[in-house]
């Protein structure tokens, strides 16, 4: 069915937004983490979205090239670290303080993470709306002649 392609596009977007949410959750969870396996404070992570042409699920249909070009799913192809300098806080009693008594805290800004969180939530909702619209269109099509 042709509607499954639309659902697959929205599905890929929902998966991507979920991964973005996971990354934001990691950033907020580690907003004060000073130790990581790689050493040093936690670094803020960010997702990279990439458009991904949708391959036909139920056998290649004879869709024209235009039609194939119109179906672009999305995927998170990379999770990159933010190389902004860490936040330095003076706390000589902290075990991870450097020689000058400064502790390197992650370069995570809780406020901008919260805004990203809202953006991810809204994008997720928007894609759910697309799924619902697809469903409504399919049901309208099934009502033809009824």
């Amino acid at each position: 069915m042709d509607f499954t392609g639309t659902l697959a596009i929205s599905g890929s977007a929902l998966s991507a937004e979920r991964l973005r949410l996971d990354v934001i959750a990691s950033n907020l969870a580690n907003a004060s983490t000073t130790r990581t396996p790689e050493g040093g404070p936690y670094r803020r992570r960010n997702v990279v979205f990439e458009a991904e042409p949708l391959e036909g699920e139920f056998g290649e249909t004879l869709a024209s090239l235009t039609e194939q070009g119109a179906r672009q799913g999305v995927a998170v192809t990379d999770v990159v670290e933010d190389h902004a300098p860490p936040r330095m806080v003076f706390d000589p009693n902290h075990p991870d303080a450097n020689a000058d008594g400064y502790v390197a805290y992650p370069n995570v800004d809780a406020m901008s993470e919260t805004i990203d969180l809202m953006a991810a939530t809204r994008a997720y909702e928007a894609n759910v709306q697309v799924v619902n619209a697809t469903r409504q269109m399919a049901q309208a099509a099934l009502g033809i002649g009824g």
């Binding site: 069915m1 659902l7 049901q139 099934l142």
Partner: peptide, 16 residues
């Protein structure tokens, strides 16, 4: 969401 989409697909094909 993948589960919901699978259910949705099944429902639509059943209706068809």
């Amino acid at each position: 969401h993948d589960t919901m989409l699978t259910i949705e697909k099944a429902e639509l094909s059943f209706r068809l």
